[in-house]
Design a binder for these strands. Structure first.
Length: 428
RNA sequence: GGAGAGAUGCCUGAGUGGCCGAAAGGAACAGUUUGCUAAACUGUCGUACUGGUAACGGUACCGAGGGUUCGAAUCCCUCUCUCUCCGCCA
């Protein structure tokens, strides 16, 4: 959530920032926020005043009772009746105003950083850099959904989508043999690289409650994207960002514990409602996939330098995997609800001849921290911290690119860094 | 799933209707003393909203939400969570 004092002091800049995002009705929303905020303050001031009077009366009554002056006490009691009625009215009204205010605030996305390009869709994203050579494949080259069959075993394809359909449904593949082994290899490789970079590994729950979903901004914005278990009021996580960042919900971190650098591997679950189509074949889009996520909590003045550092970490992984990639700076219209600046990393999928997004690295500034109430006393002042996270990395599309890009007539070559983790250097 | 106990500040823990935003101890921080470490002593030591340039005030918060009362950490109700025992079980 944006911070109320900030909106109060920077009304025009806020409206402009939301406009850049193509957030419809920015001015109306901000006006509404400011009106409700003023009402809230007026109401609270009056309520506090009435309560102060009540407290004073109660004190007097206590003194009368102590002195044994029952008559005076009874008289004073009568005077409290009106105050009581009034305070109830004001408290009810204050509660309603706060509910209304909150309802508007949660619909307002984060403001884009000044470096975020204008734009409405993915077409307007800025290509920051491109790295590596796109491989030229041989004549018989296949897309990964064919390769997994070609290099399957008697048991079936290396990654079995149809078997997943039987067990769970579309988008829940079964990995088997070398297909499973290379998944595990990547997870270990990514975790080890993160630990070398100073991250602490955590294993969080892969279900979260409503408060956690709200804290990182999935709720109420992306309600329909998460699997929900109504019996227990739990959501399957769409990313480890949610449970890991929520470790720090309602936390005041001592300054000497900063920065926080966590990394976690989890399965991720996404309903992807309405986004199915021909272009999401194979591993391109799944309901369940594996991801290693890095999460950081930083002092505000450091967060943008840290974002660059995280981007370089992700790039180093892609370089070690020998995959051609590019880095995009998302335009304002394509950024996530809670982000102020996002870099997407895409790898080149040689058989599909397209870029596949494999990582998204974002600085949320204080937007999540405000919802999480994640603070620290810095320079003697209580301040919201900045949260950042990034995929490092999401597995399925990496696997798709490895399979496609490294295919040769003799088989599929495993990137050197993964060989010690896999125990084999070719899929043939 | 059955039975019982409990939830207070960073931690331990007192507090059964007004003198309690809350004792005491510990931790932490600052200072004094000490050649260093340790110890001792002194002080500081919750958060949010709100008024005020500030000094300094007001209000709320003792798991959450309701209720009783002039007045609730304290009494009543509901919920959540934790612990112990039994059952079940990876």
């Amino acid at each position: 959530m944006l911070q109320l004092p900030f909106i109060r002091d920077n009304k025009e800049a806020t409206i402009a920032g939301l406009g850049k995002r193509n957030f419809s009705g920015a001015e109306a929303s901000i006006d509404q926020v400011l009106t409700l905020d003023q009402q809230r303050r007026d109401t609270q001031r009056e309520l506090d005043d009435v309560l102060a009077q009540s407290n004073a009366k109660a004190g007097q009554i206590g003194a009368f009772m102590k002195a044994g002056d029952k008559t005076a006490a009874e008289g004073a009691k009568l005077e409290t009746a009106a105050l009581k009625v009034r305070s109830k009215e004001l408290a009810d009204s204050l509660r309603q105003i706060e509910v209304d205010l909150q309802a508007v605030l949660v619909t307002i996305p984060n403001l884009p950083h000044s470096s975020v390009p204008e734009g409405r869709s993915g077409d307007d994203n800025e290509v920051v850099l491109e790295h590596g050579e796109k491989p030229v494949l041989h004549d018989k080259a296949l897309p990964h959904w064919e390769l997994i069959k070609k290099y399957g075993s008697d048991a079936g394809p290396m990654i079995d989508f149809e078997l997943g359909v039987k067990i769970a449904g579309a988008g829940f593949p079964v990995y088997r043999g070398k297909g499973a082994r290379i998944q595990r290899a990547m997870i270990n490789f990514f975790l080890d690289e993160a630990m070398k970079a100073g991250y602490m590994e955590v294993q969080p729950p892969i279900v979260v409650n409503e408060d956690s979903g709200f804290g990182t901004g999935q709720l109420p914005d992306k309600e329909g994207q998460m699997y929900y278990m109504p019996e227990d009021k739990l959501y399957l996580i769409p990313t480890a960002e949610v449970p890991i960042t929520n470790i720090y919900r309602d936390v005041i971190l001592p300054e000497n514990q900063l920065p926080i650098k966590n990394v976690g591997y989890t399965p991720c679950f996404r309903r992807e409602a309405g986004s199915w189509g021909a272009h999401v074949r194979g591993l391109n889009r799944l309901h369940q996939f594996d991801k290693v996520e890095i999460v950081r909590i930083e002092k505000p003045e450091n967060s943008y330098a840290v974002l660059e550092e995280m981007s370089l970490h992700v790039q180093s992984l892609l370089q070690k995997l020998e995959l051609p990639y590019r880095v995009l700076r998302l335009c304002a219209g394509d950024m996530g609800f809670t982000s102020a600046l996002t870099y997407d990393m895409e790898v080149w999928s040689a058989a599909q001849q397209r870029w596949l997004e494999v990582s998204s690295v974002s600085n949320f500034e204080a937007y999540q921290a405000n919802r999480l109430k994640l603070r620290s006393k810095l320079a003697g002042k209580m301040q919201l911290l900045h949260t950042l996270n990034g995929s490092a990395l999401a597995l399925p599309r990496i696997l798709a690119a490895i399979l496609e890009n490294n295919q040769t007539p003799e088989g599929i070559r495993i990137p050197k860094v993964l060989v010690p983790y896999c125990g084999f250097d070719m899929i043939d």
